[in-house]
Design a protein around this nucleic acid. Structure first.
Length: 414
RNA sequence: GCCGGGGUAGGGUAGCUUGGUUAUCCUAGGGGACUGUGGAUCCCCUGACUCGGGUUCAAAUCUCGGUCCCGGCCCCA
């Protein structure tokens, strides 16, 4: 027996139906925000991802040489492909460019709860603008999506990477070593960060101020403690969000994204029910296009971990009711099978999802099967009814039956 | 990559400690009881010991290794 590769999943019809349903909700919300869907290749030149995330990600990429000796990698995320696409073919579109995507990504990691080697991301990018308005728009989109899915317990935290970067620079941390420090702070490894800072000759006072900054957490009121333009900026973001009806946003300057290209506001959402892998959304403002050969363009984007958010919903007990087909056509005897095929064909032509017994079952078994496939109605085609150009329609939830003229059947079932 | 727990029909399970006849039960699937009416009942059928090596007269059971799953660490763009 061949097994599926480690860290991958098959989605059986019931699960797939549920996933499509929620996918549809996310698409719908993005469209209502004026975003348009894109699709990019599942694989890209490996270089694209190395440029974005640094050489270390090679360890976690599905990367290989193709038959033309090209270095290729399965995409581990979709921001870089989206920005590449923007640089290649969308740079003259009206600004801001608002795009979203949904698709699978691949990372060679050890699978665990909420982490797979093939997983699905839903993301959006707003390209070509940098101000609180754009950042608020993206946070509002993310919040609306999570809300629309029905997840109850989640938190959105907003930070600002510029504050820390500025503070580190002012404290004498060399520019090329800020990433190193930020990574430690991101991981909350304060002891290690402290050692590094001491090593760089950062004073006791400055170190304390740095740690105080990362621990600036709370509501809008804590923004008064945030120095410089960043505090003002975040205040604007929060005020716009309030106008957009997005509340319950936490300020947390400890939200640090490890990568260099984030320039200002950063945000994350997490669902506590998930345990170790609880982050369901992450994003911020960035510039990437210049890395891919374009001009520098400011953008804000985020990605939602689709699998994780579905897992969180499941853990919250949010059920999804499976749909069935509209009608199941049952011939009452073999003599009228031909007429039954005509009836099912008529229903299908009219867009009514319908099925018919293909196994030569007797009526009772066919009824049972109709029930098993969650048919809403059974259309019984029998000699008695046909003599009146009619069929019997049985409502499977109520058991109620009606004699319906074949010419009226489509209307009756619509 | 590291630590720990697991793997018995499609799904859920009993058996494993203490090796021994035809591997238990529920459910699902197919057929029948039931010749024009589902979700009830009864009967029949299909279907499993994760893979490989070792110990043994004999392995689902003991043992070693692989593999996959689960929880956590590392990582997390």
């Amino acid at each position: 027996m061949i097994q599926k590769p480690r860290g991958t999943r098959d989605f059986l019809p019931d699960e797939m139906e549920r996933r499509r349903h929620y996918e549809g909700i996310l698409r719908h919300i993005a469209l209502t925000f004026g975003f348009r869907e894109i699709s990019t290749p599942i694989f890209e030149e490996t270089e694209l991802f190395v440029l974005r995330s640094g050489p270390n990600i090679l360890n976690e990429l599905y990367a290989f040489k193709d038959k033309g000796d090209r270095d290729i990698a399965l995409r581990p995320e979709m921001t870089a492909p989206a920005v590449r696409m923007f640089v290649n073919g969308m740079s003259n579109e009206p600004k801001p460019v608002k795009i979203f995507y949904f698709g699978q990504c691949f990372r060679y990691e050890r699978p665990q709860s909420g982490r797979y080697r093939e997983f699905y991301q839903f993301g959006a990018e707003l390209i070509g603008n940098k101000n609180p308005e754009s950042d608020a728009e993206m946070i509002a989109l993310a919040a609306s999506m999570i809300e629309a899915l029905g997840l109850n317990d989640y938190r959105i935290r907003i930070g600002h990477i510029g504050v820390l970067r500025q503070k580190l620079a002012d404290s004498g941390v060399p520019k090329e070593r800020t990433a190193e420090i930020l990574q430690k702070l991101d991981k909350k490894s304060y002891d290690e960060a402290e050692l590094l800072l001491i090593d760089m000759g950062v004073s006791d006072l400055a170190r304390q101020e740095i740690f105080d900054l990362t621990e600036t957490v709370g509501g809008k009121e804590v923004l008064s403690e945030v120095p410089g333009e960043a505090g003002e900026y975040l205040r604007s973001v929060v005020e716009i969000l309030e106008r957009m009806g997005v509340r319950d946003i936490d300020i947390d300057l400890g939200v640090v994204r490890g990568l260099d290209y984030y320039t200002g506001m950063v945000f994350e959402a997490e669902a506590p029910v998930l345990g170790a892998e609880k982050q369901i959304c992450g994003g911020g403002s960035y510039t990437l296009s210049e890395l891919f050969g374009g001009e520098q363009v400011f953008s804000t984007g985020f990605a939602i971990g689709f699998d994780r958010i579905l897992l969180a919903m499941e853990k919250e007990g949010i059920g999804y009711e499976l749909k069935g087909i509209d009608a199941y056509v049952v011939p009452a005897s073999d003599a009228v099978r031909g007429e039954a095929y005509s009836v099912v064909s008529m229903l299908r032509d009219a867009g009514i999802s319908s099925d018919i017994d293909l196994m030569g079952r007797k009526m009772a078994k066919a009824m049972k099967h109709a029930s098993a496939v969650r048919a809403e109605n059974v259309v019984i085609v029998g000699e008695k009814e046909l003599s009146e150009d009619s069929v019997t329609v049985r409502d499977m939830s109520s058991g109620e039956q009606n004699l319906v003229r074949i010419s009226e059947l489509v209307r009756f079932l619509s």
